[in-house]
Computed example of a mutant assay.
Amino acid sequence: MNYFKGHAGSWPSISPMSAPDERPSEDARKSKPSRVDEARRVIEGYANDLREIIKQLRRLD
């Protein structure tokens, strides 16, 4: 029995693997902050805003 009847030569062509991309340069990595740095910046901004709100609320007393 020929299970592959009519499929001979119809296999998809396989291209060789491409070379891996080069690692980003130091400048490229420094231009975009890491996720931890970005989260820290957002949290610090939030904390500063809360401090300002607390100061304003204390003035109302």
Rank of each mutant, 00 (worst) to 15 (best):
N2F: 02
V42S: 04
N2W: 04
E22N: 14
D21F: 08
G6N: 12
E22P: 15
D21S: 14
I53N: 04
W11I: 09
R29V: 06
I43D: 05
G6V: 06
H7Q: 15
P20I: 07
R59S: 05
M17L: 10
S18P: 09
P12D: 11
K32D: 10
R29N: 07
S31Q: 14
K30I: 05
M1Y: 07
Y3D: 15
L50H: 03
L60V: 07
A28G: 08
S15Q: 15
A8R: 12
D37Y: 01
I14D: 02
L50A: 02
E44C: 00
E22T: 14
M1V: 07
S18K: 12
S31T: 11
F4I: 10
Y3P: 15
F4T: 13
F4A: 15
S34K: 07
I14V: 12
A8S: 14
R59I: 02
S25R: 10
P33K: 07
N48S: 13
N48R: 14
I14P: 00
E38V: 00
A8V: 13
G6Q: 08
D37W: 02
G6P: 04
Q56L: 05
F4Y: 13
S25F: 04
E38M: 03
I53C: 02
V36Q: 13
N2K: 07
K30R: 14
Q56E: 09
H7E: 14
P20F: 09
R35T: 04
A47C: 11
N48D: 15
R51I: 00
S31P: 03
R59D: 02
I53Y: 03
W11G: 14
I53G: 02
D37K: 11
E26T: 01
K5L: 05
Q56K: 12
R35Q: 03
E38T: 03
L60D: 10
W11S: 14
F4Q: 15
K5I: 04
L50M: 05
R29G: 01
S18A: 14
N48Q: 15
K32G: 00
R29W: 04
R23C: 09
A19Q: 15
M17K: 14
A28W: 10
S10R: 15
S18E: 13
E26M: 06
A28C: 09
G6A: 08
E26R: 01
H7T: 09
N2P: 01
R58A: 02
L50N: 04
L50K: 10
R51W: 00
P24H: 10
E52W: 02
I43A: 13
G6M: 06
